[in-house]
Amino acid sequence: MKLAVCINHVPDTETKVKIGPDGKSIDRAGVNFVLNPYDEFAIEECLRLKEKKGGEVIAISLGTDAHKETLRKALAMGVDKAVLLKDDSVRDSFSVAQALADCLKGLGPDVVFFGKQSVDSDDAAVGLMVAEMLGMPSVSVVVKLEVADGTAIAEREIEGGRERVRTTLPAVFTAQKGLNEPRYPSLKGIMAAKSKPIEEKQALAAQPKVEVLSMKKPPAKSAGKIVGTDASAAAELVRLLHEEAKVI
């Protein structure tokens, strides 16, 4: 079984976002970049599928040389091959998907995995766009997956419950937290990853359909009223919520 996982290199979730000098993106100075958290679940699921069904796992990342660090982490977790689609252009989700779909077309995967979203742009769109571009069905926000010959049953999270989805393969899946418990790279894995090659390819040129006009910080909230310091404040708090805020 050929398994592909598309991964991203993003600011870690503890990052305090500062707006960059262009006014359209974040200031990257001093920011710690990591493997996108949801992509860890995607990689883990591919590794488990390979352990059950055999085959190989290929990790793909679109970006600058900095993304090699994230590809190395994937290799250290146990991914067989890594591909860097070299790119430093400004892209929207559509043009990211085009470059990834172009690369995946040549690989002929049975299963393509993504994290359910990148925690930078939060579009939650690229994986599903790739599915459409490749003419594949998809299941997004997957928390459980069983793969058989030519089909899969996936559970996806929806508001207040789960949907059980049957899909034909090949298909695209996007991973939600809870799908599995991602492994830590072993020392042996980390050492092995250092010697595994990262294949570099030029990404398909970007043709974005969305233009960023500006990036701003949301209006700052100011600290409010301390109503009290023990249970006796409960009545006053309820009065404020009812009469002042009018939310109950």
Partner: peptide, 8 residues
């Protein structure tokens, strides 16, 4: 960035 910034 989960609401840490707003994009126009």
């Amino acid at each position: 960035y989960a609401g840490k910034a707003l994009l126009e």
